[in-house]
Structure formats: C-alpha cells, structure tokens
Design a protein around this nucleic acid. Structure first.
Lengths: 338, 338
DNA sequence: ACGTTTCCTGAAAACGTTTCCCACGGCCAT
DNA sequence: ATGGCCGTGGGAAACGTTTTCAGGAAACGT
C-alpha cells in the first residue's frame, strides 16, 4: 500500500504538502497541487484512517449508539442516519446496546480515543460523568428521543402524541379507553412510553373522564407481553372499548388478542398504536405517525453541522406528530355507551 | 484522557507490560498483572482504537458493505450481523452502497489502511483487482449471497428456490404462470433474480410446460415497478393465473395490482414471493423463506473465526430454502384449465 | 560451581498521519 | 534600500499504541 511519503516522493514535494492538499488546508500553488493530485491517483493512494485519527484525536466516522437495534423503530432511525450521511464519506458505525454494560462501554468510547468525529445517540441517557467526558473530549453527539441539556437533539412531543391518540378515540365516542405501555424502565430510563401515558391521562381528564388506573397496563416491551396485557384488559367486567398502545409493536399484540378472542376490529374494539412503523400500513393500523426515518436524516444533518463548525452550539428540532386514521379505529359498540 | 503511559507510571511498570496485560499476550506475573489492572481501572483507561490500529495495521471493528441498506432484506441481514457480533466488542460499521462509486470507495478501504479486522460483503462482486488487494492486505471478508472463489460465503441455492416456488404453483394446478424479476443488473451484477428465474424455467420445463417468454417481465427492483409489470401481465389476452415474484417486495406490488383490478387473491390470482421478509407474515403472503437474519448471524460467526485464526481458509455454508404456504396461493380458477 | 533454559520485564523503534514552527523569495509600504 | 508581510513549502515533533530485541533473574541439569 502506498503511503503519504510515497506520494510525496513521486510528486517531488514534502509530506506536509501532500497532507495539505488532502485536507484542502493551507496554501498550495495550483501547480504543486496538481502534481500531488496526479501522484495520488497514480499510486491509488488512500490515507490510513488509523494514522490520520491518531494526531487528530478522532476517527473519520460517525457512530450511532442505539438500544435494541432489531426493533423496527430503531431500524428506521438508523436507516435515516445512514442515508443522511450517504453523500458524505463518513462510514457509519452501529453500536448496539441491549444491556446496561453495553451503554457504559459505548459511551466510554465516545468520550475517549475512538472519539468518532460525530455521534448520534438514540433514546439513551448518558450519566453526568459521561456527559462531562463528552464535553472534555469535544464529542458533540446529537440526541434523538432524549432530553439532554446543552446538546443538540431531535425529538417529538410524546405527551402531546399520547394526547392526540386518546383524543381521537374520545372523539369517536369511546369512554372506556385502555392503555398499554412499557414498564417503567429502570435500566435505560426510556421516557417515551411514560410521556405518552401522561398525554393519555391529559386527554381523558380534558374530556371529563376519570383516568381509571385499572385501565392502564404496563409490561416489558414486545408483541407477546402486550398481548398478555390486552387479555387482562379485555377480561375486565367492564372492558375498554378501545385501547391505545404506546407503540405499534404493542398495538399488534392487541390485534392478535382481538383476533384470538373473536373480536372484530374496529366494530368490537378499536386499537390505536404509535410510531407508524412500516407494517402499520400493511395492517391498516390507526396510529400516531412518528417520523422515525426523518429523525435519522435530521440527526445526520446536525452531526455534519457539528463536525463542520465545532463548538457544540446545541440545536433542537422538534418533529410533528399526526394521527393517521386507518381501519382499526371506529365508534364504540352501541350498547357500550351506558 | 489517560494513556498507556499514565497507566504504566501508576503501576510502576513499562508500557510494554501494560500492553501485554491489555492483550493477554506474553508472560506477566500474576502480581504485576494485578497492579496493572488496578491502575487501569483507577484511571478508567481505554486504549485508543486509532493508536492501536496504527501498528497493527487494522482497526478493531468489522465492516459490513451492503447495497441499498434501506431495503428490507438488507436490513434483516445487517441485524443478523450486528446481533451475531454483540457478544464481542467489535463495533459494526455499515458501508452503504447505492452507486458503483460507493462500491469502489468502500472496497478500497477494505484493501487498505482502514482494513477492519473483519468484513462482510453482501450481494456485491468485487473486481479481480479488488480481490487481489484484499488478499494482499490480509482482509478476509465473508460474502453473503455472492459466489466468490477462495473466500468464505454463506448462500442459498436461488435457482432451486425459484424451482420450489414455481413447483408449488404447478402442483396447485396452475399452467399459466408469470414471472416478475429484476432487470439484468449491469451496475452491480446481482445474480439472485436471474437464478430464481432459471429455477422458474426449470420447473416449467420439468412439468412439460413451455416457458413462454411473454410471461416473464423484469424491471427495476421495487414495489411500484413490479406493479407496473403485473399490470402488463394481467392485460394479456390469456393472462397468467399465478405469478411468481422474485422478491416479496415485488410480490407486494403484484398484490397491489390485484386489489386495484378487483381480483381476489388467491381465487382469481395466486401470488408467491421470495425472501419471507417481516411484512410477508402480516400480509399472509406465500413465499420462499430465505433465512436472511440467520445469514447475518452465520456471517458474523465466520468473521470471528477468520479473525481468531488468520489464514483465510474459506468456508462455505449453504442455507436451506423452504416454501411457506400462507394465503395468497391456491388452485387456479376452474375455467382457466382449458 | 557453571552453562542453559525459562520467565519476566524494559527500551526503543516502528506505524502513517497532522501540525507547529521556521525558512525562503517576492512584494508592498515606508 | 530596509523592514515586514504574504504565499509557499519543508523539517521534525507529536499522537498512543504494538512489537522486536535484548537483558536480568531464577530455576534447572550436570
């Protein structure tokens, strides 16, 4: 493999000069520049990322730290980031976290030597220590779906989303509305489900309905657990006529149960989800559209912005939420209105 | 940030020794080792990947180069790789290729200084030059869905898969069977659709049916293009009673057209896809199950194996294909048998 | 007692860049 | 003319590891 000194020799200049043309910095005459460029292409020279990273104290790439990369909403966001960065030459490195140790480990990297030029952190809350180490290292991550002071972020108003979803159900005439969400997460501190539930309560209250705790169920995130929870709700003496699930994955679990119980949706039971992941469209699931892919795209732009002008001036961008009405919601059964 | 010399000082040893305990190589007395370990944790030392990569001439990570990372089958494979590597501490870096230049660029990295410790290449054919540069650099990529001599790969028998799909249709009684696949790809040289079509022809021939070229349509990969093609097929004077689409995405396009034309599936038209991506299950699409996620898992294992014992002894693993019968295929309409 | 091996440790030379600092020539302002 | 600045280029010191080589001490066989 050709190195920078090979190029320098061939072009008859010093390595400094080659470095300068590679990075477009410093002054170099058009003639010299051309000679160097020729030498580079003749030797098919490619700078070594490791060698370049050492003095610059950061690697030419952007890392995405994302919990549970297999779940559909994570996938959509990662896709957005990858696509947003496609026009640049930054490789994207995916750091999956499924256990708290992973988080520790990956954040450690961001605050230290690996220090990628840019980073996106999805749904995770670094500790104060970790944030301090980011600042110290000059890492300037963009947060998606997290509220972190002094850093850039792209987010939605989950509480308002929960409100919208519930309001939709209320407007259809429902009075007994169940909620299925994530169990309070002590490991990672995810907040979205909690906020969505708050919005749900807001909407009930605004409509003069009391938020009966026995209509709320939480559990491990997932289709099966959600089905479990839905079964409990439907076994109630006065079961809800509609269920708001705080993610589409969970809504699908509810749909599973409806089918298994012979309930027709939406005639016997209305279901609304949250996120609008790809399968929601196929299933005709009414849901709150959450621009996941776009959030990745925006995060990518912010990352580039931070890389290009350092200093970490934080920018926040909020994305809009919108109810997408499909076929899983409708008016409640007639006799239920008593 | 603490460096290796800080650790060495604190432990009262030479950097060499610290390096040795970090990498578990060379002999270090238990006592010294413990002192170093203590110093490491007291200083929260983390080696810099760039610095470590420089002398070793490779970066501690594995790269996945994958075309069109947004399409569902690519996603499933990447997930498999990420998950397969989760138990190791290798970051996974995703190199998306959407244009031939990207391929050039990413393969350039693999053969040179970035040289990740491991690599998996999906569906892409490096040129002879590029392969040579891999060998020279000692990169030992694992190929998924590509036939490359002297390298490890995980693959399926696409031709047989095409055969199975078509055979399924024939066994149901279909005689006029359409095929929708990818246009011959001159940019990346993808082969799977072509092979699946060959299997389709094999099956027709084996059943004594002639493979009528006017029942075959190819176009840009995608749901919409596929719909276009399906419309052509269905507009034929004697339209096919069943269509084999060489991917689920394309099968979904066919389903779109069936709905739009008021055709009931499978009463009026049978549709079979290929891949069994996630939405196939939701749609009840009959398809050929292609273990995409598992292919990523296996590739991850192979990569680790190659990293642990260098030398690049190639291993091939073939995955089985299987028809998953759901609700989009059935016997042909009665009058069609003439 | 002496060589030989084995075990542990350290010094120092890479690895391929970037960047700080300095030198040189030409030009402008004084 | 003289001094300073600007545009251009080079020398050399980082950057933080790994690795090669060698050295010293302890253990072993004779």
């Amino acid at each position: 493999m050709a190195t920078i000194v090979d190029v320098a020799k061939r072009a008859g200049v010093a390595v400094t000069t080659v470095s300068r043309v590679m990075n477009n910095k410093g002054q170099v005459s058009e003639e010299t520049r051309q000679r160097v460029l020729d030498a580079i292409s003749e030797l098919a020279y490619r700078p070594s990322p490791a060698a370049r990273g050492l003095p610059r104290r950061r690697l030419h790439m952007v890392s995405v730290v994302v919990p549970f990369v297999t779940n559909p909403s994570a996938v959509a966001r990662v896709q957005g980031v990858v696509h947003g960065l496609r026009s640049t030459d930054y490789p994207v490195s995916i750091l999956d976290v499924e256990r708290p140790e992973h988080q520790e480990e990956h954040f450690g990297l961001l605050g230290s030597g690996l220090r990628p030029e840019g980073a996106v952190i999805v749904s995770l809350h670094p500790s104060e220590n970790q944030l301090a180490s980011f600042r110290a290292a000059g890492t300037c991550p963009v947060f998606i779906d997290t509220d972190v002071a002094d850093f850039s972020r792209v987010f939605v108003d989950d509480r308002h989303g929960g409100f919208l979803a519930t309001q939709h159900l209320i407007q259809l005439g429902h009075r007994r509305i169940g909620f299925i969400g994530d169990k309070e997460d002590e490991r990672f501190g995810f907040t979205s489900s909690r906020l969505r539930r708050r919005g749900y309560r807001d909407a009930l209250q605004a409509a003069g309905l009391d938020a009966a705790a026995h209509f709320e169920r939480t559990g491990e995130h997932g289709r099966d657990t959600s089905a479990e929870l839905a079964r409990e709700l439907l076994a109630l003496p006065e079961p809800p006529t509609a269920i708001f699930a705080s993610s589409d994955t969970q809504a699908i679990g509810v749909l599973d149960v409806a089918k298994e119980a012979g309930l027709q949706v939406p005639r016997d039971l209305s279901v609304i989800g949250f996120d609008d992941i790809e399968v929601a469209g196929f299933l005709g699931l009414t849901t709150v559209r959450h621009p996941l892919y776009e959030s990745g795209l925006i995060a990518a732009d912010l990352v580039i912005e931070h890389i290009e002008n350092p200093g970490c001036t934080p920018r926040s961008v909020e994305q809009d939420l919108e109810v997408i009405v499909r076929v899983t919601t409708g008016p409640p059964p007639a006799q239920s209105s008593n």
